[in-house]
């Protein structure tokens, strides 16, 4: 078990700290966080607001750099990378799903989903074809020309998941993905993640307040005051 884990280590965090300078005061948000995530894990991160989970999320998603500590993705040390390389890693390795969906309002569903591929440099035609296929896969194939404001919250989140998945990332980072949805629709989205995890072995990290959501994940990290306080391994 341990050997297979170390062979498949997707994320490795060692002593991650993050400080912010707010005026004269220095605020330490993350106070030394270490954990590993194996490829194919479904992981929940819970914690009250202010616990540092959003900051952790930003670091995991390569939107922010730790003040200290080491972070590796698939063995690659993030601290060594410049901004364009981080952008490339975000594009190829990470798919974001946000609470507020964050689809671009002026683009239709298909163009939204195609965007990560276009930033990867794929020809527009190919990007659109793959986007179309991904929308089919999340059950939104018949809405590919709708703009976000013509879609319900659940539908928008499906499109957003398609956008996160279209680049075949190693990691899906979902920040309160069901937070803006009613519980029935939220559960539908959650089931999409479960299916992805089960059928395609995608690594998924879900940040949530919702114990019901967290309970469906194989593993739970609890944060309080910038530290991991509990390191649960629930039954799958």
């Amino acid at each position: 078990m341990n050997t297979s884990l170390s062979q498949n280590r997707l994320l490795e965090l060692e002593g991650i700290r993050k400080e912010f300078q707010i005026g004269p005061a220095r605020l330490e948000i993350l106070k030394g966080i270490s954990f590993e995530v194996a490829a194919g894990e479904l992981l929940a991160v819970m914690g009250t607001s202010g616990s540092g989970k959003s900051t952790l999320m930003n670091i995991l998603g390569l939107l922010d750099r730790p003040s200290a500590g080491r972070y590796r993705i698939a063995g690659e040390d993030i601290g060594q990378l410049d901004e364009p390389s981080l952008a490339r890693l975000r594009n190829e390795r990470i798919g974001f799903v946000f609470q507020q969906f964050n689809l671009l309002p002026r683009l239709n569903a298909r163009d939204n989903v195609a965007l990560p591929l276009q930033y990867r440099g794929l020809p527009r035609r190919e990007a659109l074809a793959r986007a179309r296929a991904m929308l089919d896969a999340v059950g939104m194939g018949d809405r590919d020309h709708h703009r976000p404001n013509e879609l319900s919250g659940g539908q928008q989140q499906r499109v957003a998941v398609a956008r996160a998945l279209v680049g075949e990332p190693s990691l899906i980072l979902a920040d309160e993905p069901t937070g803006a949805l009613d519980s029935r629709v939220g559960q539908e989205i959650m089931e999409m993640f479960l299916r992805l995890h089960r059928e395609q072995g995608t690594t998924v990290i879900i940040i949530t307040h919702d114990p019901g959501i967290a309970a469906q994940c194989a593993r739970l990290l609890r944060m309080r005051d910038g530290l991991l306080v509990e390191h649960d391994a629930l039954a799958a």
Partner: peptide, 11 residues
């Protein structure tokens, strides 16, 4: 959002 999904700053 564009930066998060992999746009470089120069994009």
């Amino acid at each position: 959002v564009r930066l998060a999904i992999g746009a470089r700053r120069r994009d």
